[in-house]
Design a protein around this nucleic acid. Structure first.
Lengths: 88, 88
DNA sequence: AAAAAATCGGTTATATACAACCTGATTATA
DNA sequence: TATAATCAGGTTGTATATAACCGATTTTTT
């Protein structure tokens, strides 16, 4: 895979990644444990946090499970945030 | 693609599909319009409703947008529902 | 200062999502 | 009764998610 610029994802990808990062930071969790509980490599979890990769629904479920929160909680108000983000 | 039984998805796929179906049924929306607003083929939307295909996050966003609801709303209490579903 | 965690930026093979189509049957509804 | 909508099941090419790694640097914690 060459170094071809940056993937052009739906803005949700970046916002969601930041939220995951913030949840970990605001908690006592460490990435390593979240990744383990989500049954995933830490480096790959970081790709999601960076917004470098888009996830499937089942991956979302595994991550929220590792974070000990619900999808509903993680996504609360996210549509507005995405909208604000685009206006920037 | 041959007829190889049924894909072995995370249980969320089926539950989510049913919810999408229920939202449409409970509203005045028709599948055709939801699909159009989600910028997607009706037949493919139906695959998600049937639980025949797992979606990415950006697809989820397009569908909730077509349904005029938030992801948070669509997923409210879904973890418990998935759990109940597995016990059946 | 040493150790642990987080960061950044990669690689590869394989599985699968996506989009755009199709046929044909059944069920509403105008 | 038309006709629109829903249903169930396909197909195909292409894009991309996943998993499992790598090395090296920086930041945080102990």
């Amino acid at each position: 895979m060459k170094k071809d610029k940056k993937k052009d994802y739906h803005p949700i990808v970046e916002v969601l990644g930041k939220r995951i990062k913030d949840v970990i930071k605001a908690s006592s969790l460490v990435q390593k444990n979240v990744a383990h509980d989500a049954d995933m490599d830490v480096e790959n979890l970081r790709k999601y946090m960076r917004g470098d990769q888009e996830m499937k629904i089942s991956t979302l479920m595994r991550i929220t499970s590792g974070l000990n929160i619900t999808v509903s909680e993680l996504f609360e108000g996210i549509e507005e945030e995405v909208k604000r983000n685009k206006l920037k």
